[in-house]
Design a protein around this nucleic acid. Structure first.
Lengths: 225, 225
DNA sequence: AAGAATTTCTTACGTGGTAAGAAAAGCACA
DNA sequence: TGTGCTTTTCTTACCACGTAAGAAATTCTT
């Protein structure tokens, strides 16, 4: 571990900070490698030693927003009605997205779900399960609440793009970091005797959420009249 | 109305059809002007006589998906419980999005909401209002159900990008085509004595939907145990 | 036949991502 | 002290994409 070489003027942190700032000011469209580099008084290619290309930069942005969400969420007490826990969590996330309006757009555009996002779902799921909900209901809750946190309606647990090739270690790390999600996936896989794949399953989720909303709205309607 | 000039081998329809096909096969990323032109055995610049650039092409794609939704929706009866009407409508829309997975992504990426999308909201709102719901509740329903149809959580009625400059005619056309939406906007504007703008308002919508979901989930939890 | 109209094609420019490798700037060992 | 190794930054260049400008092609009108 030597300190040899030209002393760095950049760092991953500085690059990402500049990118966030630029996005806050000009949105995601104007965010080119050259623009971010300019903001740092540096050439575009210099960024490549700190993020792996444009995709890496965007991944870094996701990481940063989710870190902010984590921060805004860190102090939430985890006892009391699970609804309060989840409610505060969702509102905190929303606050961050309001500060960074490009957040939801960016999140939906990314194809894979980063660990930082999983951390949220883990917290929501944990609150529910500890309140006595089944993993099945928890699963449906994650789908239903997904767009409440991030503004997206994405297939959550579709094995996106070679998720099959996870090493044993990675899986066990995942299980440690996200025990409830892991248990939920296991339970759901076990329940569904094979006919899961495809959108039938996801259609059921869709209908579940839809009916939740429709019934809630109908209750409000009759209550108001 | 003459037929003079070189006979066209292309048409807006053919261009959009090729684009849809390409998107179905390769997603939105690979969809370049050159690729769509290739598929038609034509040069990229030839497309410009039928769509106004890339943006126009994407607008056309939105138009096409929404047309499919319309088609899948046309036969829905509009009497009975409003929930059934809305339910079928949402499921029909979902079916189309499943056929064209790029649909939601495309819809969220567009900055303005095309009339074809308004038509849906009009139908949903109409069903609710005719069932006795207030415009206020209808408004909240549109927000809550928004992501159920299109996968998006967008500010619905934010005057996006120079919506102030609509001609008198355009407004009256809009009022004719979408009477319920027009009435709703009027009612909501009237109610809110000035302090509407900004995200406070939108935060209220957010909380409303959130509580709808949380309460619904809690009801399911206690029912299951 | 000449001209007008319309679509398509050719060429070329600007921008954005990034590959390849040269230049800069510090450390280690002689 | 200098020579070479290492790490970061910069230079140059290529390719893909959107599209502006205008030439070429093709048909109808007169």
């Amino acid at each position: 571990m030597t300190t040899r070489g030209r002393p760095p003027t950049l760092s991953r942190e500085r690059v990402l900070a500049a990118a966030v700032e630029h996005a806050d000011r000009s949105g995601l469209d104007g965010m080119t490698m050259r623009a971010v580099a300019d903001e740092l008084g540096v050439e575009a290619m210099s960024l490549y030693h700190h993020v792996s290309g444009k995709a890496g930069l965007l991944d870094g942005l996701v990481e940063r927003v989710m870190a902010e969400v984590d921060e805004a969420t860190a102090l939430i007490e985890t006892d009391g009605d699970w609804r309060d826990v989840v409610r505060r969590r969702c509102l905190a996330a929303r606050g961050v997205m309001v500060r960074h309006p490009w957040g939801p757009t960016l999140l939906v555009s990314r194809t894979s779900i980063p660990p930082s996002v999983f951390a949220h779902f883990e917290a929501v799921l944990g609150a529910m399960v500890e309140a006595g909900a089944s993993y099945h209901l928890g699963h449906r809750a994650l789908h239903a609440l997904g767009s409440m946190v991030l503004g997206f309606t994405q297939e959550l647990f579709a094995p996106a793009d070679g998720e099959g090739d996870l090493s044993e270690e990675e899986l066990s790390l995942m299980a440690q970091a996200f025990p409830h999600i892991t248990a939920m996936v296991a339970a759901e896989l076990h329940d569904s005797d094979g006919d899961v794949l495809g959108w039938c399953d996801s259609r059921a989720e869709f209908e579940f959420t839809l009916d939740l909303l429709l019934d809630g709205l109908e209750a409000q309607r009759t209550a108001a009249s």
